[in-house]
Simulated assay, not measured.
Amino acid sequence: MTVRLRHVAIASADPDNAAKFFETVLGWTIAGKVDSRNARGYYVTDGTINIALLNFKNRPAAGMEFPEGYTGLHHLGFQCDDIEGLVETFEGSGYAPRHDVNMAQGLGKNPSKDNAEYKMKGPEGVMIDVSERGWVGTDSYKKLD
């Protein structure tokens, strides 16, 4: 099974300013804008990695371990070719799905969503995204037909 890092999420107090940094200082591209019931922000990319710069609107969607107003690393996202197999590997290794966040965000294997993904527990308390589709702006993103 192939598993590659393709996504990093940063909780941001000012996603507009953060996106401007990536665009003007690093020369990255704004690949998308987020404005959902859960978060507001941007996806920026260098073509290989997608970084979500998110201002979360509610704690259940962010994960209750994050205090109101938290900024910093939120989660890492890995693209795979067999999401069921990867979730099974996580669970077999003692890293359970984050059902609380998955339910709050309406996540699950759903090919009609932007990212067919699950949030999982990871080492050191870092939340992990797993996705077959990947993230907009990356070279391995699988567009819907």
Rank of each mutant, 00 (worst) to 15 (best):
V3G: 02
P97T: 14
A19K: 00
G85R: 12
M127D: 03
P60F: 08
I51H: 00
M127W: 06
A31I: 09
H99C: 14
V8G: 00
A9S: 14
E124I: 11
F22R: 00
K142C: 13
W28E: 05
Y70D: 10
D14K: 10
H74C: 13
R98K: 13
P67H: 13
N110L: 07
H75C: 02
A9P: 03
V136C: 14
G27S: 12
Y42Q: 01
G134F: 00
I51K: 00
D100L: 08
N115Y: 01
S140G: 07
A19N: 07
F66I: 07
S140D: 14
D139N: 15
N38D: 15
N115L: 01
L76S: 15
D82M: 14
R37E: 11
V136W: 02
A62T: 09
V8R: 11
N38F: 00
L53R: 01
D100P: 02
M120Q: 07
A96P: 09
P123H: 02
A18T: 11
G94N: 06
Q79Y: 02
E91A: 08
P15G: 05
D35I: 11
K143Q: 14
R133H: 06
D82W: 09
Y43W: 01
G94K: 11
F90K: 04
S112W: 10
V44N: 00
A96F: 10
V130R: 03
T45P: 00
V3P: 00
M103V: 14
E91R: 05
P111E: 15
E84S: 09
K121P: 03
L76V: 14
N17I: 15
G47V: 00
E88W: 10
A31H: 03
D129V: 08
G77W: 10
E124K: 07
G27H: 05
G137Q: 01
V87E: 08
R37L: 11
E91Y: 02
D16C: 08
N102E: 05
V25T: 13
A11H: 07
N55W: 02
N58D: 13
P60E: 11
G77T: 12
I128A: 01
D145G: 15
C80E: 04
T45F: 00
T48A: 06
G32F: 01
K143N: 12
I128T: 08
H99E: 14
L5V: 13
G134W: 03
A96M: 14
E84H: 15
G108K: 03
M64I: 13
K142P: 07
G47P: 02
H7R: 02
N50C: 09
N50W: 03
K143I: 06
